[in-house]
Design a protein around this nucleic acid. Sequence first.
DNA 1: CTGTTAGCGCGTTCAT
DNA 2: ATGAACGCGCTAACAG
Lengths: 346, 346
Amino acid sequence: MSIKGIKKQFVTLSDVAEAAGVSVVTASRALRTPEMVSLAARDRVDAAVRALGYVPNPAAQALASARSRIIGVVIPSVTNQVFADLLRGVMDAVEGTPHAPQFVNTRFHGVREEDLLRVMATQRPAGMIVTGIDQTEASRAILSDMGCPVVQVMETGPDPMDMMIGCDQVAGGRAAVRHLLERGYRRVAFLGARMDPRAQRRFAGYRAVMEAEGLDDPALVVTTAEPSSYSVGGRLMADLLSAAPDAEAVFCNNDDVALGALFECQRRGIRVPSRMGIVGFNDLDISACSVPTITSIRTHRYDMGHRAVEMILAALDGDRPEAPVIDLGFTLMDRQSSRRLEGKKT
Amino acid sequence: MSIKGIKKQFVTLSDVAEAAGVSVVTASRALRTPEMVSLAARDRVDAAVRALGYVPNPAAQALASARSRIIGVVIPSVTNQVFADLLRGVMDAVEGTPHAPQFVNTRFHGVREEDLLRVMATQRPAGMIVTGIDQTEASRAILSDMGCPVVQVMETGPDPMDMMIGCDQVAGGRAAVRHLLERGYRRVAFLGARMDPRAQRRFAGYRAVMEAEGLDDPALVVTTAEPSSYSVGGRLMADLLSAAPDAEAVFCNNDDVALGALFECQRRGIRVPSRMGIVGFNDLDISACSVPTITSIRTHRYDMGHRAVEMILAALDGDRPEAPVIDLGFTLMDRQSSRRLEGKKT
DNA sequence: CTGTTAGCGCGTTCAT
DNA sequence: ATGAACGCGCTAACAG
């Protein structure tokens, strides 16, 4: 392109400006704020851009403007299907925009989160999406220093840092347990793996209902610090059957555990839902297909990711949302695994 | 920091240099090539870095060096558990390095992939990881123009662009079918969803074995363009039972389909494995826990992601691997769903 | 509406 | 072993 022809490897804005016969600034403005440029200039710049195949250099943009087009997404785990859904929502939402997500995972570790945020800060992100509402004070400080829109996703709660979109985990827990009680189960147990803050709150919902009904019993609560998985679900069910052989139903932390628990029942010949009711949380695809199908609390992870991005983009455009915190709610998917009365299957 | 105190929001290298009483270049060298700096200067720079909490600005680095620390990862889908495992391997491997992955998904779309690569190119990535071996000519050209290490993952094949790590999909398909034949199943069907190139090659393995045995029959092949899922697996099994009621076993495209097929059998009261054998592909967690457990071809997705990153980092250090293509192989996980003789479960 | 002038923070010559 | 000077490609001030 240039006479030296050595260092320059890409088409730059000056190339475009030269080709269009305008100054670099005009070319720049034609691309970023077309309404501030004469129609004639705009057309010539556009033509030059197409002819030369110009694509802006994000590093130069970021350096000059002290703002990148990166949207930082902080999640605790990539393994978990729940977060995969969130990611999908985020990726779909940035599509067609000049923004790109950058994912980091905290592995459920608070200090690690602070370090990761400090590194993210050097990128001057356009926006940040963080999981949950339990950030440390230090993390909150770093985030607010970033000077960009921040959305807390997955949960709702008081005291949002900036914006928030999710659902009430305690209410979800309550709904699950009430459903089982309505179905006629009394000895309702709680199975929980990886008791992170959200799982804790679901458990709080469970306990609230059980205590209110005078049905609470420590023997009915089985948890582990291990990450949730199908196999852990099976083990928790096994432990429960030892500790409380008369348990009639389980509310599981999430659907992985619920499905593992179901399999354990099948291995032991325990009939679900007649002898044992099961309710999960999150409503994974598989819960609607298993035999029997699994009753679960459906949360809207994809939408949370998608709308979180939309909220950030709107905020960048100066449109702050009316309400900073959005509760997407949840839906009880009433399926076979909690249908005590008509229970006929395995 | 500076007298103006207005624009400067972050600690820069000049701040560090000033605090350490050295020039900016020296500070820069102390960080990047410590051996070229006197011990005294090095220590003072290190101290200043810690005292001021200096973190380099990646945009400035990228602009000045025409190289970012981003590793581009191109996958066809984020939904799929298989790619989630790959991502996890990648994320774990970059941890502790100055590199960061950037994910884009092609949605199994070739032209889309080209566009995405063109955008990635503007970032001057440190390395690229791409899925599969079926890139278009244009994509290959863009990738090679990036002037960075490129690793093709998931499969092995001839003609690697640069480096390659995966396994032989055709061989995997053959192994699955041979296993079923050895177990005594004869009318072995193929169930396939989203017949992407990898699925096509597994199918090629299936067909090769069936033809060699003189057992091939078009009625035994049921596929759909829909993405694979548990429910699609159920539907494929239903379709198979209409087209070939005498089918004795199925080799499924992947474990989602296999599990869906199992559920469909359970709904219809068809005994697995005695009446219907099932083998999946990829070996998801759930396949080891379901009732019955599912025989599957285990592939090493996590390792592929992890080692792909390691290969890139090594190449950046000038250590090209001995062999540019690594075959990680696969393992047949022999479980209950194909145990025809001892089959007793549902 | 347009152009001129200065940087953004770092890497990379060249000198010394 | 060290430093001065320049430039990466773009945006942000300020004039006109």
